[in-house]
Amino acid sequence: KLPPGWEKRMFANGTVYYFNHITNASQFERPSG
């Protein structure tokens, strides 16, 4: 399970990334916590 605010998303080319809808942060590494 991801930390609060984070969700797993995917680009059109299939690349997975993680987006935080609270802070609008995005990253390729899975957030810890």
Rank of each mutant, 00 (worst) to 15 (best):
R9F: 07
Q27V: 08
F11C: 15
R9W: 04
P3A: 06
P31W: 02
L2A: 03
N24I: 04
W6N: 00
N20L: 02
G33D: 14
T15F: 08
Y18W: 09
G14V: 02
E7G: 04
F19L: 05
V16R: 04
E29I: 08
P3Q: 05
A25Q: 15
W6S: 00
Q27G: 02
F11Q: 13
K8D: 02
F28I: 11
P4K: 10
G5I: 03
E29R: 06
L2E: 08
F28H: 07
F19M: 03
G14N: 05
Y18F: 08
Q27F: 05
F11E: 11
M10F: 13
A12Y: 06
N20M: 02
G5L: 04
P31M: 01
I22V: 11
V16I: 14
N13K: 03
G33K: 10
N20Q: 03
F28K: 09
G14W: 03
S26N: 07
A25S: 11
G5N: 09
Y17V: 07
R9Y: 07
M10G: 05
G33S: 13
I22H: 10
Y18T: 00
K8T: 10
R9N: 02
G14Q: 05
S32P: 11
S32L: 12
R30I: 13
A12Q: 11
A25T: 14
G14I: 03
S26M: 15
L2N: 02
G5K: 02
E7A: 06
N13S: 08
F19Y: 14
G33F: 15
Q27T: 10
K8P: 06
K8S: 08
F19W: 09
N24P: 01
Y18G: 00
R9L: 09
G5R: 02
H21K: 13
E7Y: 05
K1I: 14
E29Y: 08
V16D: 04
T23G: 02
E29H: 10
N13V: 04
S32G: 13
L2R: 01
G33A: 14
A12L: 09
Y18H: 00
F19P: 01
T15K: 12
R30E: 10
P3E: 06
E7R: 06
Y17P: 00
F11G: 12
